[in-house]
């Protein structure tokens, strides 16, 4: 399974092939620019994501992770820097982008049933009703939810709501899935389940994923590469390759030597004042 030799990762190969889904260059974001209350949320961030890759962005709370995601999804305008999605400059939210918000409680529409929530982006893309209904049931089943179509999001548990939000983002088969701390507010067991769900979705659909988290273990478990951000205003501290292979398993992977080695390295990065670093 996972090789101990540091061979070029699949992502490194495809990076060479040049199929870049997302590229971020010198991104800077200042809120209330030019006003006395101006606040630099992102100082200077550059990285790129290639097709099929799973990239995690880690950083402490308030580092500007949500801001970064809003910029790279086209929801917020950067103050400076270059952003490109599938080679084209990013100006608005691309049609081929799926987004899962940090706060699913506010992002799922309470006035719609789960089916209507999930079907909304399909309706916006002109998918006919019958086809939409079929697709909604399919995608809900694929995130492990059966027969919640007629229920409302607020009738479901937090973990189930997050699954609905994921189903909604996947319903229109986006090329890139962006997720903002999607598992931050669910219990540990649900969290493991959802992590494995995302990994299997990614395997089945061959989708590219960028996921923001403040949990280092989660980042290592999920990703091919980790972009480590500094505290506010954020800069890229280091981009760490995660050569753990495609197959991951909650207990075994997390107990492996490679995992623990990466964990130690990342902890050093995010805690610069750890004893042996001094």
């Amino acid at each position: 399974m996972s090789q101990s030799t540091v061979s070029p990762t699949p992502s490194a190969e495809s990076r060479a092939a040049g199929s870049e889904v997302l590229s971020v260059e010198g991104l800077r974001k200042i809120y209330n620019e030019g006003k006395p209350q101006a606040k630099t949320a992102i100082d200077d961030v550059s990285f790129s994501v290639t097709k099929g890759e799973f990239v995690c962005i880690v950083g402490p709370s308030g580092a500007g992770k949500t801001t970064l995601l809003r910029c790279i999804s086209g929801l917020a305008k950067p103050s400076s820097g270059k952003l490109a999605f599938e080679g084209a400059p990013l100006t608005a939210v691309p049609d081929q982008l799926g987004l899962v918000f940090q706060d699913y409680g506010r992002s799922l529409y309470p006035w719609f049933t789960n089916a209507k929530n999930v079907g909304l982006p399909l309706a916006a893309r002109g998918v006919p009703k019958a086809q939409r209904t079929r697709r909604v049931s399919e995608i809900l089943a694929s995130v492990g939810l059966g027969h919640v179509e007629k229920q409302y999001p607020w009738e479901l548990s937090g973990g189930m709501q997050q699954r609905v939000a994921i189903a909604r983002a996947l319903s229109y088969q986006p090329d890139l899935l962006l997720m903002d701390e999607p598992f931050a507010s669910v219990d540990a067991q649900t969290r493991f389940d959802l992590e494995d769900l995302i990994l299997s979705v990614r395997r089945d659909l061959g989708i590219t994923v960028v996921l923001v988290t403040h949990d280092i273990d989660e980042a290592i478990y999920l990703s091919d590469r980790i972009v480590v951000l500094s505290g506010s205003p954020s800069r890229v501290r280091e981009v760490v390759d995660v050569p753990l292979g495609r197959q991951r398993e909650q207990v075994a992977t997390r107990a492996s030597d490679e995992f623990l080695g990466l964990r130690r390295h990342l902890l050093d990065l995010v805690m610069p004042h750890a004893p042996h670093a001094a």
């Binding site: 809003r70 939210v93 987004l99 918000f101 506010r106 916006a124 229109y172």
Partner: peptide, 12 residues
């Protein structure tokens, strides 16, 4: 967040 969601889903 409600507005961001609509924009992200391509609802215009």
């Amino acid at each position: 967040v409600v507005l961001d969601t609509a924009r992200a889903l391509g609802v215009r």
